[in-house]
């Protein structure tokens, strides 16, 4: 079944079609959510909320650009919104505190495997984590990040530089 037909069936409320759409993108989107979340449980919450929004906003997808890109944007925005709600002001550490953290991560033989890199990102303070993800992986500019997170471009650059330095230290140690 092609993507257009799948979307049409989803819009018609076809539960089987919705499940197929979920199965098609859940893996990639879960990995994305894992990068923004502190742990797997939080990532599952992001994924759940993100897909609920995908289904409820499906009628606004105009077919311009890739559907995967559209879903990815929703997932990123949902993750950021839930981070604002749940994480940042409650439990987030400053980067200076993060530097003082004892080595909570066991260094694997292959320090460049995906799981280790993911756990490095997850151990960043939430604000730094978001900026690093948006800039290094999603490809946003600092200006766009500033607008997205309501921070200045300078703050975005500053947080990104510190996050990258910390990650570099983790990898090269």
């Amino acid at each position: 079944m092609d993507e257009k037909q799948l979307l049409k069936d989803c819009l018609d409320g076809n539960r089987q079609a919705q499940k197929r759409l979920y199965d098609q993108f859940a893996g990639k989107m879960f990995a994305l959510c894992m990068r923004y979340a502190r742990n797997q449980q939080m990532a599952e919450d992001f994924l759940q909320e993100g897909f609920i929004r995908v289904f409820s906003k499906l009628d606004t997808f105009r077919g311009q650009g890739s559907f995967e890109g559209w879903i990815r944007t929703i997932m990123v925005n949902t993750s950021l919104e839930l981070l604002r709600k749940n994480d940042l002001l409650k439990k987030s550490l400053s980067i200076s505190e993060a530097f003082e953290l004892p080595d909570q991560l066991e260094l694997p033989a292959d320090r460049l495997n995906e799981q280790y890199l993911l756990s490095c990102i997850q151990s960043l303070p939430a604000g730094f984590r978001a900026v690093f993800n948006l800039y290094a992986i999603e490809g946003y500019t600092h200006k766009e990040i500033g607008e997205l997170l309501s921070i200045s471009e300078g703050t975005s650059k500053s947080q990104y530089a510190r996050a990258k330095a910390w990650l570099q230290q983790r990898i090269s140690n």
Binding site: K19, Y22, A26, G27, K28, F30, A31, M34, R35, A43, E44, L47, Q48, L112, N113, E114, L117, L118, I121, F132, Y135, A136, I137, K164, L167, Q168, I171
Partner: peptide, 21 residues
């Protein structure tokens, strides 16, 4: 650093638990 993270994590695929659906 950016390349490393973008390549390794940008296209990562991780199946979520079935209960999420």
């Amino acid at each position: 650093i950016e390349q490393l993270f973008a390549e390794k994590l940008g296209k990562l695929d991780m199946q979520p638990p079935q209960m999420v659906w």
